[in-house]
Simulated scan of single mutants.
Amino acid sequence: MRDLDLRRLRMFVEVVEAPSLRVAAERLFISQQALSAAIRDLERQLGVELFSRSRRSLTPTPAGKALYEGAVPLLAGGAHLASEVRLIDASNPDPYTIGHTPGLAPSEVFEIIEGAVLADPSLPITVRPLSPSAIREEILGGNIDLALARSREVPPDLAGATATRHKLRLAVNAHHPLAANPTCAMKDLESCQIVVSELEEDYVNMLVSYCRRAGFEPKIIASTLRGTPPHMAVITHPEACAFVTNQPGWLYGNQIRIVEFDDPPMTPVMALWLPNTAPRIRNLILDAVGVSVETELI
């Protein structure tokens, strides 16, 4: 069988995503007849029907849905490869962009990339905040090259590996009862509210699982703050506590106490990227933190 024609594959994706064949053809700047012919050629090549056809719409068949799910990251990978090749030939390449979710402090991101940066200080790297819900879209769209998030899940059309793990601690307001404790147990949170960012659903689910393993159902409340470190939530929610990765001790003019757990849970930091790509900078970063992509893929 001939290799897939990426041009026809892109046409197929446009037909799936557009509200009609006419709109898809307009977006591709070709006629409806040419687009229909291209889809038919793709179906003949694969030996399957990709759409259930009616007078009003084209509905992907199960085979069409499977092709679409694989085509989106494949086309993104092709664009990424073309960009990578052009950058190698450029005297002033665009930076390698890393997005990180709010649960990760910029200093924690630097710890992950530090080894690669020290090995080659000339690496052009840009780090910026990223909404957890935007990870897939930003990577597939080529806006970021690597995402770092507190997560255990990898979207089905992305690749990923655990970059590192951080010890969780507890942030409480200075007036909270647990602020006087040198350490605490997870079970001590049974009667406490736990304030979280509602933006990071997977991370929240992970925290809930830690509490359930300790034998209780947590009382979760959503933080009203956006764009500030997680420990600051206990200033606006003084009755609640928050899971953090700060070092133990006092913060914010002794208004916040970071308390160690007797048996601290470890939270993973997941690195996410386009599958079937191997950019040099990403490999340098993962090698420096001891991640073997071949063995650590999730």
Rank of each mutant, 00 (worst) to 15 (best):
M1W: 09
M1K: 10
L4W: 03
D5S: 04
R7H: 14
R8D: 12
L9R: 04
R10C: 03
E14L: 06
E17P: 04
A18Y: 08
P19E: 14
P19R: 14
R22M: 10
F29H: 15
I30D: 02
Q32F: 00
Q33N: 08
Q33W: 01
Q33M: 08
A34E: 10
A37F: 09
A38Q: 14
I39G: 11
E43D: 11
R44T: 07
R56D: 15
R56H: 15
S57A: 15
P60T: 13
P62T: 03
P62K: 01
A63G: 04
L67G: 02
L67H: 03
G70C: 11
L74T: 06
L74E: 09
L75V: 14
H80N: 01
E84P: 03
A90P: 03
P95E: 14
T97N: 00
G99V: 13
G99L: 06
G103A: 15
S107F: 08
F110L: 12
G115P: 03
G115V: 04
G115T: 00
V117M: 15
L123V: 03
P124A: 10
P132H: 11
A134W: 08
A134C: 09
I135P: 09
R136E: 12
E137R: 04
I139M: 00
I139D: 01
D145P: 01
D145G: 03
A149R: 02
A149F: 03
A149N: 06
S151D: 05
V154D: 13
V154I: 14
L158M: 07
L158G: 04
G160D: 04
A163G: 10
H166I: 10
L168R: 05
R169P: 03
A171Y: 07
A174W: 07
L178E: 07
A180E: 11
T183C: 08
T183I: 09
C184Y: 01
C184D: 03
A185L: 11
A185S: 15
E190W: 05
C192L: 09
I194N: 11
V196F: 13
E198Y: 10
L199D: 08
E200K: 05
E201L: 12
V204P: 08
M206W: 12
L207R: 04
L207Q: 09
R212P: 02
F216P: 09
I221D: 02
G227E: 05
P230D: 06
H231D: 02
V234S: 10
I235N: 01
C241Q: 07
P248D: 06
P248Y: 06
Y252M: 15
Q255W: 00
P264V: 05
P264Q: 01
T267G: 13
P268G: 04
M270G: 00
A271D: 06
L274P: 01
P275D: 14
I281G: 02
R282A: 00
N283G: 09
N283Q: 13
D287C: 02
G290E: 12
S292N: 15
I298Y: 14
